[in-house]
Design a protein around this nucleic acid. Structure first.
Lengths: 215, 215
DNA sequence: CGGACGTTTCGCTGAAAACCGAAATGTCTC
DNA sequence: GAGACATTTCGGTTTTCAGCGAAACGTCCG
């Protein structure tokens, strides 16, 4: 499936969680609409893509979080070679970005590390869970959008960061926490790419929670 | 690389950590020696295989643990469909087996779970480490082959089990612990497949370390 | 209704590569 | 040194499939 450059380009373009019509994906992949249509059909039948039809448009997205995690894992060996190049090109992308739908980059790694240290995150055999101390702290710091009940139920998983080469928090729990921070205005999505820009207020709140960026 | 069934079969055959000559791999993949030779050349140049030449034989193996982990990750979606079939076919394989070179199956999952519970394993952002309590217990239980100094330095990583659907201990630390248990005679390799057979003595020792199999 | 637009289907071409048999290479054994 | 064996290289055939243009289909808009 990923052996074809055109298909890889399509999947890569969707890895930020966006939803795009067929024509745009054809342009991104650099092939004709007819060719792209054939690829999209195969990816759809292979269960890698999801589809949302609306009028004469057909919007494609990754099928689910598992697919995104799988693609991240697949891309690791290749990314190891070009990681330095990517990192040097965009510092913002290196500091904080979305890894599909959860927080990655320096900020993601530091958060995972700090909260493990404080005992807010617990690693069990069924995944990573957020303990009540952590959930309470998150809400008290102003992240009211986070539903404590929900956060305690969700489980996360480790995800290897291809710029930092260290673990950060992914899975449903990671997605929920990242979403709550976006809703609370701590982070803002960049227009151009997958970068996440911390707001001044967000930086302050995160520091209260033990998440400090060196630079 | 994996798009070709013949190449996939070759890699799959080497995933148990074995080392096999070209002719055998050709037979396993169901292609002629000439075809297999071409595939092996590509896999070698691609850095996926390692080579050990001995006389007129050329023995191939996976290049390193990273490749094995990568293949495991690749195979996950497919394994999910056929997992039940495989599990039903061989109970021994389901209880304990090698996942490349570390312990997997029920025994691997239970070990990881129990030692996390006891605080012998610690999950940090740089991987999973064995704390001195755990290393001491392992040696005291009779696993003298384990070098305490070395074990404390090594780091492990989570590995998702495709029969149990839960996490177990992989990475260099997992390999070292599994190797020590094999050397100590707690486990024995099966002839036919990747199964690991616990010896009566091994079962007793493992139970002392909190690793109990239900059945 | 009719034209513009996004998308898919169809028919076809060309290039990549998987595959095999035969021959060549290198190694072991007698 | 001769023959058996494992493996690779070479030459050639066949299969596979990405890719495109043209046509067909369905939707939106005036």
């Amino acid at each position: 499936m990923l052996a074809e450059p055109a298909r890889a380009a399509i999947l890569l373009a969707l890895m930020d969680g966006t939803t795009r019509p067929a024509g745009e994906l054809a342009h991104i992949a650099g092939v004709s609409a007819a060719t792209a249509s054939a690829h999209l059909k195969r990816l759809l039948e292979g269960g890698l893509l999801g589809l949302h039809e609306q009028g004469r448009h057909r919007y494609f997205r990754l099928a689910n979080d598992d697919v995104a995690a799988w693609l991240e894992a697949m891309a690791l060996p290749q990314a190891a070679r070009t990681a330095t190049v990517v990192a040097a090109r965009d510092p913002a992308l290196c500091r904080a970005r979305t890894c599909y739908r959860h927080l990655a980059g320096q900020l993601g790694v530091v958060l995972c590390e700090a909260w493990l240290e404080r005992g807010w995150l617990h690693v069990g055999s069924d995944g990573i869970s957020l303990l009540s101390d952590g959930a309470d702290a998150l809400v008290q710091a102003g992240c009211q959008e986070a539903s404590t009940q929900q956060l305690l139920r969700l489980r996360g998983r480790h995800c290897l960061d291809w710029t930092e080469r260290r673990l950060h928090l992914g899975g449903p729990l990671g997605v929920a926490i990242t979403g709550a921070m976006l809703d609370a205005g701590w982070l803002r999505r960049a227009q151009r790419n997958r970068a996440l820009l911390p707001t001044p207020d967000g930086l302050r709140r995160l520091a209260e929670l033990g998440v400090r960026l060196d630079s």
